[in-house]
Simulated assay, not measured.
Amino acid sequence: MCGRYANTKSGEELGRYFDADEVADVAIPASWNIAPTQQVPIVVDRLSKTDPDEVPPSRLVTSARWSLVPRWATELTSTYPTFNARSETVSEKSTFKGALVRSRAVLPADGYYEWHTVTGVDGKPVKTPHYIHDPVEGELSFAGLYSWWRPPVADGQEPAPWMLTATILTRAASGPAASIHDRAPVMLPRELVDEWLDPTVEGDQALVDAMVAESEAVLERLELHPVAALRGDGPHLIEPVAR
Rank of each mutant, 00 (worst) to 15 (best):
Y5F: 15
N7E: 11
N7I: 10
T8P: 09
L14P: 10
R16N: 10
R16F: 08
R16S: 14
A20Y: 03
D21H: 15
P29Q: 03
W32E: 09
A35C: 04
Q39R: 14
V40H: 10
V40N: 07
I42D: 06
V44P: 06
S48N: 09
E54A: 15
P57Y: 04
S58D: 06
A64Y: 14
W66E: 13
V69W: 06
W72S: 06
A73Q: 08
T74C: 03
L76T: 06
T79D: 12
R86A: 15
T89K: 10
E92I: 03
S94N: 12
T95M: 14
F96D: 13
K97G: 08
K97Y: 05
K97T: 03
V101C: 07
P108S: 13
G111Y: 02
V118S: 02
G120V: 04
G120E: 05
G123E: 00
K124S: 10
P125E: 02
V126F: 00
H130C: 05
H130V: 03
Y131V: 04
E137S: 14
G138D: 12
Y146N: 04
Y146H: 11
S147W: 08
R150P: 08
P151K: 13
P159F: 00
P159G: 14
M163R: 13
T165L: 09
L169T: 13
A173Q: 14
P176R: 05
A177I: 15
A184Y: 07
L188M: 06
E191L: 09
V193M: 01
D194Q: 11
P199D: 06
V201C: 05
G203W: 00
V208S: 01
A213N: 10
E214W: 05
E216M: 01
L219K: 12
H225I: 00
P226M: 00
A228W: 01
P235G: 10
L237V: 02
E239V: 01
